[in-house]
């Protein structure tokens, strides 16, 4: 019998240094594990994707009725509403975060403990889980987006190569802003073992102020002002409007900078709040 393998190893890995090679290997492994998990529950994922598609359909029907066949609402024609909500669906799918519920479950059941025992920050696992779900969901959401535009006669005249190329960085930054902000918010579960009520308040605000419910242009001035003081428009409204060609030139750069600014704010908050959260953590169960 080999009598060597579990002996203390002479050269233990040096965890004091960040190793990008090790991190890359971890990401590949965790992404694979998440994907295997998601595929094991493909039925549930499919239902989530269908839910993602139904909401914009309802919005399209409502706003087309409001605008009327030839009319418009604050610069949005019926056909533009269709494209707006179709792209919003894509952005929403790619930026959606469910961590606030996940954290509540982790803390209540004690599932947080194993994550805290590993020599790697738990946020990396969530990044992988998130990306995996989104990549798998794209298989349903992308064709659904095209079908919505074709089926409801969306206006794609403003979308060209330039719009797509400027949309992509806006989308990636939007994903980062929302992921980091909601990761920090999810940490509230360390203090409040039941955070569902807080989550519902947050999501109601998000729905209105991000542009998911309606383009910000058609909302009252006061709501628009409030929205722009929050990070929400930079998560949905901004990337969608860049894709539609409604934001150009300097506006795009201002948007990127705003997104980067919010990322910075979220990172600082994350650092401060995470330390405190771990300190107050009292693992459930004896």
């Amino acid at each position: 019998m080999a009598d060597v393998a579990t002996r203390p190893v002479s050269g233990r890995p040096d965890f004091s240094k960040v190793s990008f090679g090790a991190l890359r290997r971890y990401y590949v492994g965790e992404f694979g594990a998440s994907t295997a998990n998601n595929l094991a529950y493909r039925g549930a994922v499919a239902i989530w994707v269908v839910t993602t598609v139904i909401q914009p359909m309802v919005s399209i029907v409502v706003w087309r009725t409001v605008a009327g066949p030839a009319g418009e609402v604050n610069g949005f024609t019926s056909a533009e509403f269709v494209t707006y909500f179709a792209i919003t669906m894509l952005v929403d799918h790619l930026t959606f975060i469910w961590l606030m519920w996940e954290f509540e479950w982790r803390i209540r059941t004690g599932a947080m403990s194993p994550l805290l025992l590993r020599p790697i920050h738990p946020i990396h696992k969530d990044v992988c889980d998130n990306l995996s779900y989104k990549v798998i969901g794209l298989v349903g959401v992308l064709p659904a987006m095209v079908l919505l535009v074709i089926g409801f006669g969306g206006d794609v005249s403003g979308i060209g190569v330039v719009q797509v190329l400027t949309f992509l960085p806006a989308l990636v930054l939007a994903m980062a802003v929302r992921f980091l902000l909601e990761w920090v918010l999810a940490l509230s579960a360390f203090w409040l073992t039941k955070v569902s009520a807080l989550n519902n308040l947050y999501f109601s605000l998000f729905l209105f102020l991000s542009g998911s419910f309606a383009p910000l242009a058609v909302l009252p001035e006061a709501v628009r002002t409030l929205a722009h003081a929050s990070p929400f428009p930079w998560i949905v409204s901004f990337p969608v409007e860049v894709a539609l060609g409604r934001r150009t030139g300097a506006e795009v750069w201002v948007g990127y900078l705003a997104q980067l600014g919010w990322i910075l704010v979220a990172l600082v908050l994350l650092r401060v709040v995470w330390r405190r959260a771990v300190r107050v953590y009292s693992a459930v169960g004896s």
Binding site: G29, E30, A33, A36, N37, Y41, A111, P114, L117
Partner: peptide
Amino acid sequence: QRNQLQWDIPVLDSYKLNQAVFRI
């Protein structure tokens, strides 16, 4: 009473994940 391995993937895959986490 706690489950540290991933529920839905083969045991060996969970081990490989631990290999990456612990840089083995």
